[in-house]
Simulated assay, not measured.
Amino acid sequence: MSDFALPALMVEPIVRAALLEDLGRAGDLTTDAIVPADLTAEAVIAARQPGIVAGCQVAALAFRLVDPAMTVTVERPDGSRVASGDVVMRIAGSARALLTGERTALNLQCRLSGIATATGELVDAVRGTEAAVTCTRKTTPGLRALEKAAVRAGGGANHRFGLDDAVLIKDNHIALAGSVTAAIERARARIGHLVKIEVEVDTLQQLEEAMTAAPDVVLLDNMGPETLAKAVAFVDGRAILEASGRITRETARAIAETGVDIVSAGWLTHSSKALDLGLDIGV
C-alpha cells in the first residue's frame, strides 16, 4: 500500500458515487452493446506529460468496483515523478470493466496528479528554505480527503481539514468580535486544550495587537517580502507564521526566504491543471 493511501472506508464511497453518476440509470450502453461479456483485455495508464503521480488507489478502486476480479498493478506509486510515456499502472481483466471504469479512474487520477504536480513545483521553488508548503480548505466538495492526500504526495503538508480541527480567526470573525484580541480571547475560552488558534492579520499593527493575546499561529495575509521580514523579526519565534495570499511559483521563494514557517496556497487544490494521463488497451 502507498504511503499516501487512505482507509478504504473513506475512499470507496467517493469512487462508488462517481461511478454511479457515470452509469446513470441504464449502465454503459456503448460498451455493453459493442464488447462481448466474456472478452478480456489488458491496458495501461500512462503519463502523457511529466509530473507527479497521485490517485493510484482511487483509480484502481474504480476498476475493481466495476468488477472485483480486475487485476491492477501499480508501477509508479503516489509521489513518483514520471516522464511522458511512463507507465503508471497496468490493468487486466474484463474488457467491459476496463472501458466502463476508465473515465472515472482517469478523472480522479488526472485531477489528483495535477494537484501533486503543482505542489511539487511549489515545494521545489522554496527548497533550501525553512518554509513548508501547505494547502487550504479551498477544495472540491466531496474530494477534500483525496485532494489533501495528493498535496502530501507532491511533498507538501496539510492545513486544517475542516472547521472542527483548529481555530482560524479571519477578518470577518474579527469584524464581528470587535477586535483581534477579543476574537482570540473568546476562542480560547471555548475550545479544548489540544486545539490550536490561528489568527489572520493584514497589517503589522494588527500583528502587534494579535501577539498580545498569544495565538499559536498567525496568518500573514497578502504581505510582500519586506513586510513579511519585519513580521518575522517582530514575532521572533513566539508563534508559527504562515504567509498566504496570491502566492505563485514565481514569488514563493522570496516569500519563503523572509523566514516564515509556512507558505500556503489555495490554488493548489482549487485550480491546479490536471495532469494528462491516458488509458491504452492492448499495450
Rank of each mutant, 00 (worst) to 15 (best):
Ala118Leu: 09
Ala95Tyr: 05
Gly142Cys: 12
Glu121Arg: 15
Glu147Pro: 03
Arg81Val: 14
Leu146Pro: 03
Glu121Ala: 15
Ala132Gly: 12
Thr73Ser: 13
Glu130Trp: 02
Arg127Gly: 15
Glu147Trp: 01
Gly93Met: 08
Gly155Leu: 06
Ala69Met: 13
Thr73Arg: 15
Met70Thr: 05
Arg81Trp: 03
Arg64Met: 15
Met89Ala: 06
Leu143Asp: 06
Ile91Ser: 07
Thr140Pro: 07
Thr140His: 01
Leu99Gly: 04
Arg127Phe: 09
Arg90Tyr: 10
Ala157Asn: 14
Thr134Asn: 02
Val123Gln: 02
Glu121Phe: 07
Ala131Leu: 12
Arg152Ser: 12
Asp67Ile: 10
Ala97Cys: 05
Asp78Tyr: 09
Glu75Ser: 14
Thr134Leu: 13
Ala149Ser: 14
Asp86Arg: 01
Phe63Ala: 04
Thr139Tyr: 02
Cys135Trp: 00
Thr140Met: 11
Leu108Phe: 10
Ala131Val: 11
Lys138Cys: 01
Arg64Pro: 03
Val66Asn: 05
Arg127Val: 12
Arg111Pro: 00
Ala157Tyr: 14
Val88Leu: 07
Ala69Tyr: 02
Leu65Val: 06
Arg103Trp: 01
Thr119Ile: 08
Ser80Trp: 08
Val123Tyr: 12
Ala125Pro: 10
Ala69Pro: 00
Val87Trp: 03
Asp78Ile: 08
Leu108Tyr: 03
Arg90Glu: 14
Gly93Glu: 06
Ala116Pro: 04
Glu121Trp: 12
Ala92Cys: 02
Glu75Thr: 13
Asn107Tyr: 08
Asp78Cys: 06
Ala118Phe: 00
Ser84Cys: 14
Leu65His: 12
Glu121Asn: 11
Cys110Tyr: 04
Ala95Phe: 03
Ala92Arg: 14
Arg137Gln: 05
Arg144Ser: 13
Gln109Arg: 00
Leu106His: 11
Ala132Cys: 14
Leu106Ile: 07
Val82Trp: 05
Gly85Ala: 08
Ala157Gly: 08
Arg127Trp: 07
Glu130Arg: 15
Gly128Thr: 06
Glu102Tyr: 03
Glu130Leu: 14
Ala118Val: 01
Arg64Phe: 03
Met70Ala: 12
Ser113Asn: 06
Thr134Lys: 02
Arg111Ala: 10
Arg144Leu: 00
Leu108Trp: 01
Val72Gln: 01
Ala131Glu: 12
Pro141Ile: 04
Ser80Val: 01
Val123Asp: 04
Leu122Phe: 11
Val126Trp: 07
Thr117Cys: 08
Ala105Val: 08
Glu102Phe: 10
Cys135Arg: 01
Thr71Arg: 15
Lys148Gly: 08
Gly142Met: 09
Arg90Gln: 14
Gly142Pro: 06
Ser94His: 11
Gly142Glu: 05
Thr100Trp: 00
Gly154Val: 05
Asn107Cys: 11
Ala97His: 10
Asp67His: 07
Val151Asn: 00
Pro77Trp: 04
